[in-house]
Design a protein around this nucleic acid. Structure first.
Length: 623
RNA sequence: CGGGGUAUGGCGCAGUCUGGUAGCGCACCUGCUUUGGGAGCAGGGAGUCGGGGGUUCGAAUCCCUCUACCCCGACCA
């Protein structure tokens, strides 16, 4: 027939128009002309508008002063997002293109892992949360709503209840197991303090998956599959990340790993060994007891007047004592297991109390609460700056490092006085020992291999072995091969999709703007004509190249605004497009075009003829 | 929830102390000149000064009150 196939390309859609000769008339004869299914090509982000005159390129020079972290500033400046209210954002077309690419990677890897996508409602009935018990347990972070009939609902911060109810209704037999369902959904958590833009927003896009199993071994297999899938997702997103052992926290359960994107602005501290594979959230990382053991006493016990010494720092500076020979006495509310209202936790002066570890002690009230100054004075008769273990009228628990210190200094429980030269088992009995402190850089790794380094991380993924907490509470079971009812065991697996976008920027930027990893860039190539309005010939060449790049499946943004060169350069660098093609008259005369990668020092000239092939090779990593 | 702060055009800010009828930069619109690193000149549009109440001849400015937002802390994927 007259038409050649596959020559018109709908910009950005990844679709190609196919002309097919109709042998017989009628719409359903099997071969019709029309848009093809999307042509898979990872270089082609979604969306249609590819000219700056048809695209909301909402870049700005100045930025609201409340944007603290670089990703927030750059997302605003590049015109990716705009704030609607605290923790709520509009995603502008540019930002949405990136979000959709991340989402696509997550979806592909989840599908490849065997998980099935579904979608659950954002708004959930209170009844389900009452069944699991979380309607009362969840605090003000849960956004509660009433409908017109005064029935109670919440905007889902997570979907364990809904999925467990679904599984309870749909799963009947062990033959249907294991299964793993996931969705990519907007969540809402009414954070006390939303900040850092979409990094810690109240409304955010999350991929959450829930798996159901007959036994732990099956859960373990799926858990490991998710671990691998997550590594694939973050690797494809071009992120530098670490998987770390994590606290199972409020959700409970057995094993748990967090995936952190490494960045100085990260809100979590993660510890990892410089020699072995050990990596854990500092909340969880075990601080080993010092191996050397406690030295023998060398000093006499003495009571010293230390007026105005209310802090460890003041002691260290005022009396020339090393901080690691001081002991801090932190008084917290006691649990019902303890006779009195308070319990004291002892950590070395140069160490920090770990709240998560403290809460795991049976003597300590949950949630952890530091005693007020008034409570301390009533119990001890001295202020918080003068406390110590000797003659302290409450139970004490000592960190392992505290138990190994000799000749130490601590408060005397008398206002303005400290004991110097204290020694366990000579001056006072050694209290119960526990791991109470945060690990520090240089501490030995708990796996016995190497020492620990500490980095900041942004949590972008979290996988949990949930066990039967929800399935038991909500009666989710199937019949096993013996016809017996078996409560299912569950796993859950989350990824902060919108947070990944911010994390990618935290990790990839310079003083000019964003530097997108190729796989999640909103556009792949920026095509910039110099003085296009002056030269019909130049305009023609640019338009031709634009069409060729689109036909080749390259997501190209043509800057046809007629802006000055400096404006175009600055905008494209701010927005972070990985590749830049600049066509000017002089180069065109020589049949060449100028190429520059976003991070390249200098541009280089390439023949205009082979330009598309050159770009394709760049994208494939050949050049 | 405790402590601190802010609210003036789309954005960033001055003006508030000492009351006199609102201004600067960026952005935006028009025209001309410009065009290889965020142009110049000229002209122009745009603000219930967060809301309500009060004092006063007169309030962005002083007083009361409410709201929103931000920072620090505790809390949390």
């Amino acid at each position: 027939m007259a038409h050649a196939p596959a020559h018109e390309v709908r910009p950005g859609s990844g679709r190609v128009f196919l002309f097919v000769e109709h042998k017989t008339p009628g719409p359903y004869n099997g071969a019709v002309s029309g848009w093809s299914p999307p042509v898979p090509d990872i270089t082609d982000p979604p969306g249609v508008a590819m000219r700056t005159t048809e695209f909301l390129l909402a870049t700005v020079k100045e930025v609201p002063s409340d944007a603290e972290v670089i990703s927030h500033q750059l997302m605003l400046r590049a015109g990716m997002i705009r704030k609607v209210a605290a923790g709520l954002y509009n995603w502008l077309p540019l930002g949405l293109r990136v979000l959709r690419r991340v989402e696509a990677i997550v979806r592909e890897e989840m599908d490849a892992s065997g998980a099935q996508e579904l979608m659950m409602p954002a708004v959930q009935p209170a009844e389900l949360w009452q069944e699991s018990g979380r309607w009362d347990q969840y605090g003000p972070e849960l956004l509660r709503l009433k409908d017109r009939h005064q029935r109670e609902f919440c905007f889902g911060p997570t979907h364990e209840e809904v999925i467990t109810a679904l599984a309870r209704d749909e799963l009947r037999s062990y033959k249907q197991l294991p299964v793993n369902f996931y969705q990519i959904q907007t969540k809402f958590r009414d954070e006390i303090r939303p900040r850092f833009g979409v990094m810690r927003a109240r409304e955010f896009l999350m991929k959450d998956a829930y798996s159901f199993h007959l036994d732990q071994a099956s859960l373990q297999r799926t858990y490991e599959g998710m671990y691998d899938a997550y590594e694939g997702i973050f690797r494809r997103c071009g992120l530098e990340f670490r998987a770390v052992k994590a606290d199972t926290g409020a959700i409970g359960g057995a094993a748990s790993h967090e995936f952190h994107v490494l960045a100085d602005s990260g809100e979590d501290a993660i510890a990892f060994s410089d020699a072995g594979d050990y990596a854990a959230n500092v909340e969880l990382a075990e601080a080993l007891a010092p191996t050397a053991g406690r030295p023998a006493p060398t000093q006499e016990l003495r009571l010293v007047d230390t007026p105005d010494c209310k802090t460890i720092q003041a002691l260290v500076e005022g009396y020339d004592i090393p901080a690691d020979r001081t002991v801090k006495t932190l008084v917290v509310a006691a649990s019902d297991e303890v006779d009195g209202p308070l319990v004291a936790l002892l950590v070395r002066g140069d160490h920090e109390l770990n709240g998560v570890k403290a809460e795991k002690l049976p003597e300590v009230a949950v949630p952890l609460r530091m005693a007020t100054e008034a409570e301390i004075r009533q119990a001890v008769g001295a202020g918080a700056g003068s406390l110590g273990p000797l003659n302290l009228p409450m139970p004490c628990i000592a960190d392992r490092a505290v138990a190994a210190v000799a000749d130490f200094t601590a408060g005397a429980n008398i206002e303005g006085k400290h004991y110097f030269g204290l020694n366990w088992e000579r001056d006072l009995p050694l209290p119960r020992e526990a791991d109470l402190r945060n690990v520090q850089a240089g501490d030995p790794s708990p796996d016995g291999r190497g020492s620990l380094h500490i980095l900041r991380g942004i949590e972008v993924g979290h996988i949990f072995q949930l066990g039967d907490k929800y399935s038991a509470a909500m009666g989710c079971s199937v019949l096993d091969e013996n016809g017996k009812d078996r409560v299912l065991t569950m796993g859950c697996y989350g990824i902060g999709v919108s947070r990944i976008v911010a994390a990618a920027i935290e990790q990839n930027h310079d003083d000019r703007g964003i530097i997108w990893p190729a796989a999640i860039a909103p556009f792949t190539v920026a095509l910039l004509p110099m003085n296009m309005h002056k030269s019909q010939r130049l305009r023609g060449a640019v338009e031709a190249l634009y069409g060729e790049l689109l036909a080749a499946g390259v997501a190209v943004l043509l800057d046809d605004r007629g802006a000055r060169p400096g404006v175009m350069f600055a905008d494209m660098e701010l927005v972070g497009i990985p590749h830049r093609l600049v066509l000017g008259e002089r180069a065109l005369d020589e049949g060449e075009i100028e190429y520059k990668g976003r991070t390249d020092e200098d541009s280089l000239r390439v023949p205009l003829e082979g330009c598309v092939a050159f770009i394709k090779d760049r994208l494939a990593g050949i050049l």
